[in-house]
Amino acid sequence: MKKPAIKIADPWDSLKEFTAARIAMGRVGSSIPLAQCLEFKLAHAHARDAVYSTLNSEAIIYYLDHLDIPIIKLHSQAQNRQQYLQRPDLGRLPDELSVRTLQENAGAYDISIIIADGLSAHAVNSNAVQLVEALVKLFRSAKYNLAPICVVSQGRVALADHIAHGLNARLSVMLIGERPGLSSADSVGAYLTYNPKPGLTDESRNCVSNIRPEGLLHEPAAQKIFYLVQEAFRRKLSGVGLKDNAGLLPS
């Protein structure tokens, strides 16, 4: 006996070329077929695993060693992921040991490069080394004086203000794992802040988003960040004011 067809396909499959949305999934009764359910579950699993992934500081330090820049490890006041997720305020503050480390490493720097796990350590583990290599090359070509590179656990964006202020740097570039999407668990965001100091808000920053192999590639991302850094130094500001003239920015 022939097996009856249970799954009903949607005959507008060809429209999938126009969008990444989950269209034309077909149905069983009026429900989503199992294959598509499991596909979705897998994507969500990747995102969830990314949220709970941990920063591989040792590997990052090892692979950045050849740049010949001191590297320091820091930690926010959020003790673990659960607390990090519920208390963003703690993720924005350095813990006691980190404050001391920053004091010991304070100097007079142009740029502080900070690598933080954010909401996806996986993203940073996968992208930070190549991105920092590209950035350092560009920054050195412009003769910027670089602060020790900071590798931060349980960090949020505004932690960069405390770090760069503590190190006495004129500008911070934080590379941080972005909130994982269903199709992008490995996306890094770069936040740039001129004259960083505690108390600043998002209006004071510029962001280059979606840095990952399937999104904005490392080299063009570094170029874009470098352009913003130069403009920030030239115009002595960052954030909304810098963005307003963003027509000049290469896309």
Binding site: A21, I32, F40, A43
Partner: peptide, 8 residues
């Protein structure tokens, strides 16, 4: 109502 409940 969103395709496959995933807003891209």
């Amino acid at each position: 109502g969103i395709p496959g409940s995933d807003d891209i």
